[in-house]
Nucleic acid binder design. Structure first.
Length: 330
DNA sequence: AATGACGGCAACCGCGTCTCC
DNA sequence: CGGAGACGCGGTTGCCGTCAT
């Protein structure tokens, strides 16, 4: 495992003394509240308490669980790290595409975006955006909120990302009947195009039932991404056409065999056994001292011919290419 | 080998909203 | 209706690992 920079490494866990405290001062209990990295013991207490009593009422939960933490801190720790269905590791190409798509629509509504990426937290998506996307905006010497950058993202990066997804799929899978069916359905209720969803479906990932499809169909207008990947097309017919276009049921995509996916951490829909196991996952959860590190997925996720998927979109060649495109639009 | 810079991520903070009394 | 506490969200900070020199 070992996500780079994580505070949950065993080294950090052992270093309980580095955790600072803050004085509450005025409460009747007048306890020293801990801050900073969580220890194994604290995680264990929190997990066990929630397993027995459920979550919510975080302030009292913190007290009753014997944690010298604020309720807020407990909530954050649970939601962003300990929750069984938290998915960790590299953001996949499909997830990157979805993040770009959703962010172009909703802006920094991280929690809203996270709702559509099962297992991902708003914090993780926010971090991804800040560390990756903003970095590349910086490289292009433009503001991440500028129209030019958004257009670059929409008309260049996203189509290119889709190409990469499709290329990865071609390289790693044979076309399944389900994929063909998906491709035949055209756009869907999310406004994402066939290319988007079909590609994602082929990998057995994304668009799970619990993503709140009704929600999406209401909130998504037209897709900004068109099959032809050209600004002209997307700015005219495509976006308005896909608005309310009768669509296929995304459940069609839920049952792609996981074996199609090169990433061992991939999950399927909630009806799928593999995903269920992934949700439960936690050989290490209740045995933190021994196996805690095993809870994290393989971070060396390889797609697209062995290139780290997390940076697939952003290699040097692309940056150069995008810079040319970007400059020519100036 | 030492060290400084940088990147990535967990955790914290402030504030707005919601819920309950 | 209004106040208090709980909750949730987005922005920011700070730590740790990695990389470059």
């Amino acid at each position: 495992m070992e996500v780079k920079g994580t505070r949950s490494s065993s080294a950090n866990y052992s270093n309980t003394s580095s955790c600072s405290t803050l004085q509450t001062g005025s409460t009747d209990e007048d306890i020293d509240l801990r801050r900073g990295p969580w220890t194994v013991e604290e995680d264990f207490k929190l997990i066990n308490y929630i397993a027995n009593h459920g979550e919510g009422r975080w302030n009292s939960l913190a007290r009753y669980a014997g944690l010298k933490r604020t309720g807020k801190s407990c909530r954050l720790r649970w939601l962003n790290y300990l929750r069984p269905d938290v998915r960790r590791g590299n953001i996949t190409l499909e997830e990157q595409l979805l993040i770009l798509e959703l962010h172009s629509r909703w802006g920094n509504r991280w929690s809203k975006i996270a709702q559509h990426l099962p297992g991902r937290t708003d914090n993780e998506i926010k971090n991804y955006w800040r560390t990756r996307v903003q970095k590349h905006a910086k490289q292009l010497k433009c503001d991440v909120n500028s129209k030019q950058f958004k257009d670059t993202m929409r008309y260049l990066w996203m189509p290119r990302l889709m190409e990469r997804i499709q290329a990865a799929n071609k390289a790693t899978t044979t076309t399944t009947a389900t994929t063909a069916a998906a491709a035949a359905t055209g756009s869907n209720s999310t406004g994402l195009t066939t290319a988007t969803v079909g590609a994602a479906a082929t990998t057995g990932h994304m668009m799970m039932p619990h993503m709140g499809l009704n929600n999406i169909s209401n909130e998504f207008g037209g897709s900004h991404v068109t099959p032809s990947y050209t600004p002209d097309n997307s700015s005219t017919g495509a976006s308005s056409d896909s608005f309310g276009t009768p669509v296929s049921d995304l459940t069609d995509y839920y049952t792609i065999p996981v074996s199609n996916n090169p990433n061992p951490d991939y999950f399927l829909g909630v009806n799928n056994q593999v995903y269920s196991e992934c949700l439960i996952s936690p050989s290490g959860y209740f045995n933190p001292g021994i196996e805690f590190q095993e809870m994290e997925p393989n971070n060396n996720q390889l797609l697209d011919g062995g290139v780290d998927a997390s940076d697939n979109l952003w290699n040097v060649e692309d940056i150069w290419f995008l810079q040319q495109q970007f400059n020519s639009n100036m």
